[in-house]
Amino acid sequence: MSTLRFALADGMTIAKRNAIKIKRAPDLLGGVVILPIVFVLLFAYVFGSMIDLPGLSYREYMIPGIFVQTIVMSAQITGYTLTLDLQKGIFDRFRTLPMAPSAVLTGQTLSDLITNLTSIVVMALVGLAVGWRIHTSPHEAVLGFVLLLLFAYAFSWVTAAVALALRKPEVFNNLATIVSMPLVFLSNAFVDSARLPGPLRAVAEWNPVSTIIQAARELFGNTGSAMPVPDAWPLQNAVTASLLWSALLLIVFVPLSTRLYKRAVSQ
């Protein structure tokens, strides 16, 4: 068998292991299924009932934001499990096996992709139940979901890099919360970023999370004149900018995570 086939097979073996773990661990499964449901219902009813927009359902406007919020928040769980694995001996075992060294991370990100797909399907169904609608053509809608998954996959590598750099589960958890909250809330997920004060507005407009959310809104047709698109390049060209962001994250964080993995396990 060739090296590449080994690498793929090993990645699948690790992905299968992670999938079994998620199935067995209630806390992980909660992150994949329960958390997304809670997010959609909570935000849709609490905020969605309070705010009225002329010509646009705020609930519909919000749902793509919740998709991306869930992707960012649940990435914390996979990063956390990676730091837990590091503390146990299991990576030592992996490193003494004739497996492809890349398999641990490709397997991890592959299983993340599956869980993200599950979360997004769950959220879309719950969203449809509470009044979210897709107003575009089927192929635009599919592109919307693909774009979300691509960003989720790229973001997995970011989380992996951070987890492998920090290594300690508690340290990772603290930092992840401190970073992911502003990443989600300093965006256009729930508010019109144009109405934020100067510096915050600049941050929100150039925040990759805003870009992905804007792209998803456009591709699902959850936009309206009540929430005009701010005059910032990444938001004006959201689909292109989303692809660029995802590509950039992958180009930077795939090699970085791989290097950090080697460093983390050769102590």
């Binding site: 292991r17 079994i20 067995r24 001996g89 030592d92 003494t96």
Partner: peptide
């Protein structure tokens, strides 16, 4: 060509 068993059991809890 090697097998290793360490001081700390390298097994996966959930499996």
């Amino acid at each position: 060509h090697i097998g290793v068993s360490g001081q700390y059991a390298a097994v996966d809890d959930h499996l």
